[in-house]
Design a binder for these strands. Structure first.
Lengths: 197, 197
DNA sequence: GTCTATAGCACGATAGAC
DNA sequence: GTCTATCGTGCTATAGAC
């Protein structure tokens, strides 16, 4: 009777819950911010009983770390897809297009990693600072690679300018509650990429 | 005996305390962030007894509003000074130079208004959203005026690009804990202003 | 493995003495 | 006007039943 058909699932379910909690953490932390999000908020969004969270994550910080890893995973999926394009310039333009496509979310909640990194930076305990910096650097490194493939001078500086522009337009779109800012600045970046030689 | 020399100050001191609380709120909210800053933190920084704060500000939100007003005041002082320069282009370059001058603070705590606006945006109650947007718009409007005086096309878009670049480089400098990012991106903005015609 | 109950603490705000 | 004491709330994290 340990595996009867209508018995509630017992084995392997732990993985599903952990994954659901990770995804919910990424989403809710983005929407509500680090300090205003409680463990209970994340548990509710993941449809997991509140007290049960601590079986999967010993502290709130571990949940935040999982959320950051989730963002890395999303970013990797996007860049892997863009890497299939033959022209590095088109890859960079594809990245900008993806940012523009997220304009409504950006206007509502800002950049997922940018706003989270900013809040992490305000904390006294610097445990997660390195992790947050690592996520941003992931994007910087990918962009730098594209510029280098294009044979540009100072690919690192160009990557910095691109990612910085993204963070800036996300923050302004969020503060002014105007998704059109993403479109306007995104189009400008696209033209900039076209004129680069 | 109501005004003997060694009596503790009684009258007019309220103004001094309110001002000290406002200045302390601006500083501590920038350093610690909105949600991690307690009334007691601000009171301690202003050298005012904790419970006394509520005589001057009925809620924490009123303190935040005062801090935002303080940032407007700082910005106004800077632009008033820059407005004395005859050339609008030099005024804009002066603004960028001021940003670079604040590079260490930006690397530690980010842009004072940008990080605060970001945290305000995460709250459910949207009472301070408009105030935060107003502060950013103040800077946008000033920059737009300079571009217009220079006879540029799309002065509003150019202002958006400039302020967006500032927010972006502040966030990256903060996340990566590297003030040199402010210098590199600031110099790039200065060159950009020079080539604009 | 799963979930409940609650300990332990920190915060915003208030009541009221001085 | 100034300050203290404290209330009520909501959080993280844990102890322990099932």
């Amino acid at each position: 009777m340990t595996d009867s058909a209508d018995a509630p699932p017992r084995r392997q379910k732990a993985v599903g819950k952990r994954q659901r909690l990770t995804a919910a953490a990424a989403r809710v932390l983005h929407e509500q911010g680090l300090e205003r999000t409680t463990i209970a908020d994340i548990a509710r969004a993941a449809d997991v009983p509140a007290g049960n969270v601590y079986y999967y994550f010993k502290t709130k910080d571990e949940l935040v770390e999982a959320a950051l890893a989730e963002h890395v995973s999303h970013l990797k999926a996007l860049t892997d897809q863009l890497d299939q394009l033959p022209d590095p310039r088109e890859r960079l333009k594809g990245l900008v297009a993806a940012w523009i496509g997220q304009r409504d979310t950006a206007a509502r909640y800002g950049c997922p990693t940018g706003t989270l990194a900013s809040e992490i930076g305000k904390r006294a305990e610097g445990g997660l600072d390195l992790v947050a910096g690592h996520v941003i650097r992931q994007l910087l490194d990918w962009a730098e690679r594209q510029y280098r493939e294009l044979g540009m001078a100072d690919p690192e500086g160009l990557a910095l300018t691109l990612v910085s522009a993204y963070q800036g337009m996300s923050l302004l779109a969020n503060t002014l509650r105007d998704p059109e800012i993403m479109t306007r600045e995104g189009d400008r970046l696209t033209r900039w990429l076209d004129t680069l030689s």
